[in-house]
Design a binder for these strands. Structure first.
Lengths: 130, 130
DNA sequence: CCGCATCCGAATGGATACTG
DNA sequence: CAGTATCCATTCGGATGCGG
């Protein structure tokens, strides 16, 4: 269950330091960001322009979309290509690294769908008090 | 790449509503929480008491540990069993659902470790400006 | 031993207006 | 078209003290 975490060494206490330098922790937190995976899933189909993404995801502000794209770009999961012209066009696309991320993400999604009922039931039980 | 998201239907715009009711979104965000997966990985080895977990994870405050445990319990990933006595003992352990979550999480961890170098390189490139 | 209550600072998410 | 600049709301993470 350690996901390659420093916590593999379960015998010894885990420090904040170890937890934060662990490569898996960063990935897990990236996955937890609200719109990142959704953007990746759109780009998995084909490249998109900025406003195109903005329109595709109803309710996401440009401010947040920009930050999301920058983060994904910084991690090397997507590429940003500027095509000069009138009007200018910037194209976002998955990189090889981004594509390689697809599989583990799909596994997680599959698990979520497969166990959706159980999770809902657990929550209802918990919230119901009992 | 959709991870079972409502975004599977890529042809149509994704609304905030669809995104938030998607079962995968909740799982992804749970994974992104700072300490949840670490706690799961500890409990994967054996059951723990509350203070035992507190000691095992150096630097995590009780306040946050409590919230983390409640969240995991609410989703049915861990169980909380009270053993009366002096002193009282509460035991946290993985449920079957929690154990089933292990595999997809390991995949993600494996990916993180396998691509750690690429990610670091991409970040250095991005931060360096170029 | 196991927590909850309180209070706080930081990070995240969001609405809007304006610019090259 | 593709953003940036501002400002605000919410959530998350954390420190600490008290109580069953």
């Amino acid at each position: 269950m350690s996901t390659g975490d420093a916590a593999v060494a379960l015998s010894t206490p885990v420090t904040v330091e170890e937890h934060e330098t662990c490569p898996a922790t960063g990935v897990l937190r990236r996955v937890g960001e609200k719109w990142g995976v959704l953007v990746l899933s759109l780009l998995d189909a084909r490249p998109y322009g900025f406003n195109e993404l903005d329109r595709a995801i109803q309710g996401l502000s440009r401010r947040v979309l920009t930050r999301t794209l920058r983060t994904l770009e910084r991690d090397g999961l997507i590429s940003r290509t500027v095509h000069p012209g009138r009007p200018p066009r910037v194209e976002y696309a998955l990189t090889d690294l981004g594509r390689s991320f697809r599989e583990p993400l799909l596994m997680l999604g599959r698990w979520a769908v497969d166990h959706e009922t159980e999770i809902r039931a657990a929550r209802a039980r918990f919230d119901g008090g009992v």
